[in-house]
């Protein structure tokens, strides 16, 4: 398979960002849904412990963002990559053609929609329009969450800054609800890259740098090598289980955000009155399970990367040295 796109620093950044964002979600949601996730609050040291962890993770997110923006500005070749992430009119055409393809009115997907199976890296763009969407949506959400998070860092300070308690409360509510919106994308992201039939249980693109991604030639047959992959027998039940968990998790968190009236959404601002139910509690916990699955898959991807690099290093060590003319080296005597 030949679809390596991430540089080594990008793979590290992606893993660190994922861990940090997961910590922000676990701490943020355990505060927001403290009725349903009481055990998570207790596990992380009560309200004070959770809020301290949330602020530490928020600070780490700012540090990671500053690092990434600096890298994009001064890193070699980064500006070219940045241009490749910008949306183009062709991406809009690709989206329209994708809709037509699903409806049976187009024979194939647009080149700007190609990301996975059946194409070599020369045939697909650095990012499909879907990939660009993921990058931009997550970027905008994280920036807004960072800004609103900084503004509400201190509740009394926020109230003084905005003069009125209502204005400060609005920012708190915005921060909480934007987190709910973002979790939908994160859950889909975990499902998309963890349960794709070609790559299940984890897509290695985000973990193995493109510099060491294998680019094997398959001269004996047509294709890119995806035909050689076999579907793991556990995929069927795993994809059904994970798919159901993602749908239930997203709907439960959405419904919970409407009815829960605890911090950060005051009762006066929520349409509902704060009732809960056993199934809602189960559903929100299923949503947290999907996020935990993301942590596990991220860790597993890094373990596989380490094993693969160790294997490559071992193979290189065992290979005999090659003479300058390409032949086998031999002693002069």
């Amino acid at each position: 398979m030949d679809h390596g796109k991430f540089t080594r620093v990008t793979t590290y950044f992606h893993s660190l960002l994922a861990l940090d964002v997961f910590l922000l979600f676990f701490t943020g949601y355990s505060v927001m849904f403290n009725d349903e996730l009481w055990w998570m609050v207790e596990f992380m040291g009560g309200n004070a412990g959770v809020l301290a962890l949330h602020r530490i993770a928020g600070f780490a997110l700012i540090v990671l963002t500053v690092f990434w923006v600096t890298l994009m500005l001064v890193g070699p070749g980064r500006r070219k990559n940045f241009k490749a992430v910008l949306p183009t009119p062709t991406d809009a055409k690709a989206f329209i053609q994708d809709v037509q393809f699903v409806l049976g009115r187009a024979d194939e997907r647009h080149p700007n929609a190609r990301q996975f199976a059946g194409y070599s890296s020369d045939e697909v763009p650095l990012l499909s329009y879907v990939g660009k969407g993921v990058v931009w949506i997550f970027t905008v959400e994280l920036v807004l969450l960072m800004i609103s998070g900084l503004l509400i860092w201190s509740k009394t300070g926020a109230a003084q800054l905005f003069q009125t308690k209502a204005a400060a409360t609005a920012f708190v509510t915005f921060h909480g609800l934007l987190g709910v919106v973002m979790v939908m994308g994160i859950m889909f992201h975990i499902f998309e890259h963890g349960f794709h039939p070609a790559f299940y249980p984890v897509e290695m693109k985000a973990f193995v740098p493109k510099s060491v991604m294998p680019h094997e030639e398959h001269d004996d047959h047509e294709g890119t090598g995806i035909e050689l992959l076999s579907l793991r027998p556990t995929w069927k039940w795993a994809v059904n289980l994970a798919g159901a968990a993602v749908v239930i998790g997203i709907v439960s968190v959405l419904v919970g955000s409407i009815f829960d009236s605890g911090y950060p959404i005051p009762a006066g601002l929520t349409p509902g009155g704060g009732p809960t139910s056993v199934l809602l509690t189960i559903g929100i916990n299923i949503g947290m399970f999907v996020l935990l699955l993301g942590v596990v898959l991220s860790t597993y991807g890094n373990v596989l990367r380490a094993r693969y690099e160790q294997q490559v290093a071992g193979e290189q060590d065992s290979e005999p040295e090659t003479a300058a003319d390409g032949g086998q080296p031999r002693d002069d005597d």
């Binding site: 439960s252 509902g272 009732p275 199934l279």
Partner: peptide, 26 residues
């Protein structure tokens, strides 16, 4: 694709029923 459509339908019904029962009391 080797996936039984009937069991797929049953899973869809089960997920839908869970969601409706989750939201109904609220």
């Amino acid at each position: 694709d080797g996936v039984d459509a009937t069991s797929d339908l049953l899973r869809a019904v089960a997920v839908s029923a869970f969601l409706v029962l989750l939201a109904w009391p609220l």
